[in-house]
Nucleic acid binder design. Sequence first.
DNA 1: GGAACGATATCAAGACCTTGATATTCGTCA
DNA 2: TGACGAATATCAAGGTCTTGATATCGTTCC
Lengths: 150, 150
Amino acid sequence: MGMPLDERLGMDLKRVEQELMAAKHAAVKVAGLTVPQYAALYVLAGNPGMSGAALARACVVTPQAMTGVLKNLEERGLVERTPHPWHRNVLETRLTEKGRAALEKADARASAIERRVFEEFSPEERDALRALLARFAKAIQAEAAEQAAE
Amino acid sequence: MGMPLDERLGMDLKRVEQELMAAKHAAVKVAGLTVPQYAALYVLAGNPGMSGAALARACVVTPQAMTGVLKNLEERGLVERTPHPWHRNVLETRLTEKGRAALEKADARASAIERRVFEEFSPEERDALRALLARFAKAIQAEAAEQAAE
DNA sequence: GGAACGATATCAAGACCTTGATATTCGTCA
DNA sequence: TGACGAATATCAAGGTCTTGATATCGTTCC
């Protein structure tokens, strides 16, 4: 079969990403949020009135996935959605007070994780890691493009 | 609020991991498999008769998640599960011919992605990337442990 | 022998992501 | 004006992952 498992750099990547998600999950759980919900609220806090589609792009998920997340947030009163005055087709989404409170509670712990990671590395190491990851992504895209062309 | 988004190394990590998953998803799709299904079949090919729980540990998911994956694979005739002669509680799982064919078809493309990534880096760079990722994980765990203790 | 523990397997509920398909609205261009 | 394309929002189906709760079987210890 293909490559041995322990040579697959994707395994290392996946494992760290899973650790990160698990830690963040536990962190935002105390505020009653999931990681995608936290991400949506975070972006929303900096961009009040954003459309669901724009939010989906910012969070790197599909609009359908964001619809589900927003549905849950709205049902629980953490965001409110009102029709846009001009574009009758878009719903402007904003944090409620309750939503802001949940975000702040979750962010205290969630951003502590990112800060801890940030401080683990020197500026040079951060640049090196980012550069390596960028090449990682470039290699994936190159192969994906070739396979798509077949 | 917490840290600015573009300082969060977790964002870089997540993005690359998403690219990898998307590419693998497209790669194994031609064989009618999903990524978790491919992973399960791959491990199974090297360990015939493995139990579902052991398979779950190897794939780094919960036993419940693996139950769902195996259920789908069994319904489509890609694996077969037979009771263990002694331990009546475990189900030995094996690839069928159909399962092996699907795995080989999927692996041709999926391992090409890993190979492309592998070849993108020199041995020194691979070591450097692995070391940085290991420290990344260590920092996450350290912070998670502190938060759990609160 | 019998109780306790550990491992296995699975059901159920809740949340998320994906693709595919649909309805509505806005803007543009002929 | 009318058609067409782009963007928005959502429903539906299929698959996965999580936690929580159960039931069964094996082994171990008293």
